[in-house]
Computed example of a mutant assay.
Amino acid sequence: MVDEDIYENMQVTEAAPQPKDLWGQSKLQVVEEAVHKLQVSLQPDNASDASAKGSDSLQLLDEAQAGVRMLKDQLGNVSAAYGEIQIRLDISAARAAVQDGCCDVLTKLPRGWRFYGGNLYYFSKGTKSWDEAEQFCVSWNLHLTSVSSQAEQEFLSNETQGKGHWIGLTDRETEGSWRWVDGTEYRADASRGFWAQNEPNYYDPGTDGGEDCVHTEPTKRNLWNDAKCTLRFRWICKQAHR
């Protein structure tokens, strides 16, 4: 069970209330009034008071500039406040994602799922054809497992308990062009050591329907063997790290 203190610390920090628009309106009004007075002052009634108007204009101009500086400073404070709020929201979203991930793992492990390398794997007890097995995984929004490394291959081999299991590798679309159904790139060079000896052997599709789906072969150190997709084996679903 997860320590309750962890959940307490993961609670979302209440965001600071957003600043109201009134302060911005009032400060803008101050600047607008100062500018308006400056415009009026620049239109002397007669030549006799032009000098006085000029002096007043300079004073009003200083007031307007001071108002602009004050407004910029407060806008900077608002920008900083919004930045802090955004950081809090990002942290809250990250905490929620971690909490959801932990709950997912804690829910699935007691049901027979296995956790390795940041991924979750489901090892079936029953048997299905390759298509039925893939459909089962899809019903969980997953796919039959891909294999990306020697370490992952060894993990899967140890967990299969001497039983053949379907994996998500097929060349149905183009004979000899293998692909992973979960979208992982198939790398022929890196995968060469995972095939059993003399596999894949591309059995003649004209006489036996072809061998377009791959399973682990327990009699061959759980290495890969291509077989007819209609055969029934156990299977492995993979939930990749999110």
Rank of each mutant, 00 (worst) to 15 (best):
C137L: 04
E217I: 02
A96Y: 05
H215I: 05
G206C: 11
D73R: 08
E33L: 15
T127S: 15
V2C: 04
L28Q: 12
A16F: 07
L28F: 14
H36N: 11
W140E: 12
Q39Y: 06
K53Y: 10
A133Y: 00
V12E: 10
R242S: 08
D62S: 15
V40Q: 11
L106K: 11
W224H: 03
V31A: 12
D73V: 12
R88Q: 09
Y82L: 02
K228V: 06
R234G: 14
T207Y: 10
G54K: 15
Q39F: 07
Y82G: 01
V31Q: 10
F123G: 02
V31S: 09
F136Q: 02
S191W: 08
A93L: 04
Q29V: 15
A15S: 13
A94D: 09
W166G: 14
D90Q: 10
G67M: 05
E152V: 03
P205D: 13
D208G: 14
N198L: 10
A240R: 11
S191L: 10
S177P: 09
L60N: 11
S26C: 09
F194L: 11
G24P: 03
A196W: 06
R187C: 04
L106P: 03
T184V: 13
L42Y: 05
E185T: 13
R114A: 13
V40M: 13
H143V: 01
Y186E: 00
G118F: 04
T107V: 03
L169W: 00
I236F: 00
N225A: 12
P218C: 08
H241N: 08
A16Y: 04
S177V: 10
D204H: 09
C229W: 00
G24E: 14
V98P: 03
E63D: 08
T13N: 10
L75W: 06
A96F: 05
C237T: 00
T230C: 06
T13W: 05
K128N: 14
T184K: 13
Y202M: 14
T174A: 15
S177E: 15
F233R: 12
P218S: 06
L75P: 01
L61C: 10
G162A: 08
C237D: 00
Q39W: 07
E199K: 09
P17L: 11
W224M: 09
I6C: 12
L61T: 04
V2P: 07
E32M: 15
N198S: 14
T127F: 07
R234T: 04
F233I: 02
D204G: 04
S41P: 01
W195E: 02
L38S: 06
T230S: 12
Y7C: 04
S51F: 15
W224C: 03
N77I: 07
I236D: 00
D104Q: 05
S57V: 03
E33T: 15
Q150P: 05
S55F: 08
T184S: 12
H215G: 12
R234W: 03
Y116T: 02
H143M: 06
E199Y: 02
P17C: 11
